[in-house]
Design a protein around this nucleic acid. Structure first.
Lengths: 219, 219
DNA sequence: CCTACCGATCGGTAGG
DNA sequence: CCTACCGATCGGTAGG
């Protein structure tokens, strides 16, 4: 899959001052690890974890095949790191929403928006792994990831509960939560920024689709 | 993954009359092919297409590794057949709903119910492949499957359109359709018959979540 | 981080 | 449908 390396390997020298010219081939920094994780996430998304070889990943960051294992002790340790990065990002965004302490309807809207940001923004490839590759983790890794994800989703429950009591949600909360997450998560499979649809418009759509006007607001 | 074959291979003899004793090891019928497709669907679901070897499949139906290729010319031809079987089933169910010609709300309800039946019933493993393994098809196979799936989903549009005009759907139809399919398709990942939830209750939930009462019905 | 290599397993085939 | 096998590729390692 990876046929040619575009650049020969230079010994790492002190970089010249002005004009960093940050190409993906440079290797003088400790963020090399992050490069690998990011590239791996992209390849895992395109070809699946089992459809991506460690050689593919190494090649895409300009290394030779065995060198990956200087940074990660195994292929699934790399997957674990990809998923952890995705969840860390999503959890961080969620936390920002929660500390604001708005009313339930506003909070839900912002949780949805925040989730779309995680799914469709720069961390999209990482979230794709979170959604579709947990099968390839070993038991210990899987437990950690599952717990994080479970906590992430559990946060929505009291918010939905409040809306349910207000009469804005017509379905029992645990089921509504699953259905809503299904609708949201499905967007990684069809959303394309080039569609010209904003994440704000998407968020509005979900709110309009799922949330009913409270009885008091009727005629 | 497959360590032992439980039974030796018997030459195919005429089966005795009474008591068919239809074990999966018997090989006197032309439905052997269907056995393979069904077993492959199950394994593809559990381990993914790339995580399942042709040896795993052969072993699970009691064959030796090379013998699979007497029935399928390649591994992805087998995947194609799995997916085709899933879509054929779903399209057949959908057709039954459409010929009944009910009002839009009833039709949508039955389309949802029919889709859940395809996703969560006996063809569940096949539909899982349809949803998650199309990446592993070659271009020609992919085109056929994508077209079938596209037709299947397009059928929902006029029904949703009618409900939108009646004021029961608060989101533009193409987007609503994607979100609803997301909510529905997500169920393959969490639904378990042992939860004690019926497909009817699930269907009701989706309708209650997404469909609003028409303005005429309000107080 | 590279070179050179390991044993295991992969999809698939020839010949019966 | 089995036996026996092919070349290719896999994740990972030793030694520098």
């Amino acid at each position: 899959m990876c046929a040619a390396r575009s650049l020969p390997t230079f010994a790492a020298t002190k970089r010249p001052r002005g004009r960093p010219r940050k190409t993906s081939q440079e290797r003088n920094e400790g963020n090399r690890r992050q490069d690998i994780v990011k590239v791996a996430a992209k390849l895992f998304r395109r070809h699946g974890f089992n459809g991506t070889s460690t050689r593919d990943i190494a090649c895409a960051v300009g290394m030779h095949s065995g060198s990956l294992f200087c940074h990660f002790k195994s292929k699934d340790a790399l997957l674990y790191e990809v998923m952890w990065e995705g969840l860390r990002n999503a959890l961080a965004r969620q936390m920002i929403v929660l500390v604001a302490e708005h009313d339930a309807a506003t909070t839900l809207r912002q949780l949805i928006r925040s989730h779309f940001d995680a799914l469709l923004g720069p961390s999209s490839d990482f979230m794709h792994a979170v959604l579709y590759e947990s099968r390839s983790l070993n038991t210990r890794q899987h437990n950690v990831i599952a717990k994080l994800q479970s906590n992430y989703e559990a946060t929505w429950t009291p918010v939905l509960q409040e809306l349910s009591l207000a009469g804005c949600l017509q379905v029992e909360v645990p089921l509504a939560r699953r259905l809503i997450f299904g609708a949201l998560n499905g967007s990684v499979r069809w959303f394309n920024p080039k569609m010209g649809m904003s994440i704000d418009a998407l968020t509005d759509a979900v709110v309009d689709l799922c949330l009913h006007a409270p009885p008091a607001n009727r005629a």
